[in-house]
Design a protein around this nucleic acid. Structure first.
Lengths: 362, 362
DNA sequence: GTGAAAGCGCTAACAG
DNA sequence: CTGTTAGCGCTTTCAC
């Protein structure tokens, strides 16, 4: 019972204006070779009948959709949604639309239908914005279909043959651990993210390296694995206190876990940062209002996302212009440290000097 | 310098299989009227040449894209991203793709290009998932273009002629205020969200009504307006203490502001919930780990979103089947109260009885 | 400057 | 059961 199309099409415009469809086409594409009068008349008719060119028909013939596929997971978490926000605004700015697919899980491996759906809608490129977790990158060197379009990955171990854009998690971990050393802490524990995650492994490796370089031996009882959630953080910190009683500070792999760590430490009657220093990772907006305000590593997801969009559009445009394909790039953005109360044992530290978002209540 | 199309199309399949394109079409659409042998052969060829039907071409001819437009704002906040997550999974389940547009601001009013972009890509329906803020609904009764496709709004004042899906914010506010009364608090202050927001007005109105019904007079100095952010919450609570010294509890319009309220109250040396009770709104995952854990109103954004998708798909399918258009619906989902430590002055209260997400550390 | 014809990849309608 | 013809809405030759 499909109804006949109601919206005006190029033919309607042509016949009302008394010209051919080609002429209308020329007008809407702002081509030079149309006489001013004709152009004016056609434009009026377009206004009048409310004509809107069909991007679908255009894509079909031009083989370009000006649409990017975005694959993401965990939108209910703040990180991925920041990423998506960055992708959306960068794409908008560049005149591209976004076709969104959310994976049901971070380590979903049934990706073929995803690619199918995106290909069949002729996206010009794909941004794979799912963090590297477990074996969810197994397919990258043996893709499910021939991927003949640009593909940029967000947040994964750089690989020669792939375009990857990521925050440098390892450097972030180093910032955190080094800072605790500078503050005079020497027994620095670690609450890791789930080690299936590349990001968690990087942060942990940095912590180890920094301590080793300072001549401090890292032992198996000095760290515990969490799962990013606040509840896992609470369990982890309890365990850490048990197995590492000399501990005087903790580098926690994200702010959510750090939040519950703060709470457990309070309950033990210990004071922060005097007895125990705490540093988190992410700089979620609330962390400035934790009690005490949380020192943390700032990673700018929004700009990583922008960089990814810019990269993919560069590739698309250049290979549409027949330019030689630029080889795959790796782009690593550097995180920064936001120093707040939870780690500031030395009074000389100036708080919030790396962050303009308004200070915590110290 | 556009390259000739590389991907196999229906003609290629047809000629390799030695049948007409029509037969191939019948096979990919699982039509019954194809002989088993032909079907088998065609399917083999499809496999072999890696043929993927073009959704674009199909949409063009069938006038259906199986794509939904989603317009949203503030993706970097947790609420909107939860909403989007719900929309994404419900759409996926129903076999629809999503074309995403993020508005640069909640009260953006330059919506015509948004509609253009969505229409020109022939979306089957639009979910307007931007909260009602200020005058950003001015256009609903005089749309920028003829909107001939289903449109469902999320989170706005119900209107007779529109399909609206929302959490019942007013009831949420009532739950919060009533709970504080039950706990024996009598001087209940309020930190409102920005009153440009419909949701903020609803929550505030409920607070007023509940107090009035209990015979408590609400005065202008009993509330302060914030802007949803933690920093505004800190300022608001300071101001509230000044202008309403007898205050013994606060209903805060979201959890972020409640977080900084807790912090300020601590700094004043007051104890929660004994001296001051606090109730928030949203139930963000961290709120169970605030200090003390936060009583709050749970609104299930994810399910609101699902309801919206189901509603719009119902409309789409029914008017594609030529059924009489079902009139616009209003769907209101009820929030629930999650009782935690920050408001539990009476010991008899059982904590966390309405929430299965694992308790706060009380 | 402008138009006619062909076709992007697919499906509806009708033959046979 | 299967093929032919036409055409979705647009753009790209190539005439005139």
């Amino acid at each position: 019972m499909r109804q006949k199309t109601v919206r005006a099409n190029i033919k309607d415009v042509a016949s009302v204006a008394g010209v051919s469809t080609q002429t209308v086409s020329r007008v809407i594409n702002e081509r030079p070779d149309v006489s001013p009068e004709t152009r004016k008349r056609v434009k009026e008719v377009i206004e009048q009948v409310g004509y809107r060119p069909s991007a679908l028909a255009r894509s079909l013939i031009s083989q370009r959709s000006h649409t990017l596929g975005v694959v993401i997971a965990g939108l209910k978490y703040i990180g991925p949604s920041n990423v998506l926000s960055g992708i959306a605004s960068a794409a908008e700015e560049a005149g591209y639309s976004l076709l969104l697919k959310e994976l049901p899980r971070f380590d979903a491996n049934d990706i073929e239908p995803i690619f199918q759906a995106l290909f069949s809608r002729h996206v010009d490129g794909i941004i794979w914005a799912v963090s590297e977790v477990g074996k969810n990158r197994n397919w990258v060197n043996a893709p499910p279909l021939d991927i003949e379009i640009p593909l940029v990955y967000l947040t994964m171990e750089p690989q020669k043959k792939l375009s990857v854009v990521s925050i440098n998690n390892y450097m972030g971990g180093r910032l955190a651990a080094s800072h605790l050393l500078e503050q005079g802490y020497r027994h620095i524990g670690h609450i890791a993210g789930p080690l299936e995650w590349w990001e968690a492994r990087q942060r942990m490796a940095a912590w180890k390296d920094v301590l080793n370089e300072a001549g401090i031996e890292v032992q198996a009882n000095h760290w515990v694995e969490g799962n990013w959630s606040s509840s896992s953080g609470a369990l982890a910190v309890e365990k850490l206190f048990e197995q590492y009683p000399e501990m005087d500070s903790i580098f926690v792999a994200n702010d959510q876990m750090a939040l519950s760590a703060l709470q457990v430490i309070h309950q033990k009657g210990l004071s922060i940062p005097e007895d125990i220093g705490v540093v988190g990772f992410d700089n979620i907006p609330e962390s400035a209002y934790f009690w005490p305000s949380l020192t943390t590593v700032q990673q700018d997801q929004y700009h990583v996302a922008k960089a990814a969009v810019e990269e993919i559009i560069k590739i698309i445009e250049s290979d549409w212009q027949g330019l030689p394909p630029t080889g795959p790039h790796t782009i690593m953005l550097e995180p920064s440290l936001v120093v707040r109360r939870s780690s500031s044992r030395l009074e000389s530290i100036k708080l919030e000097n790396t962050n303009n978002k308004g200070g915590g209540l110290v």
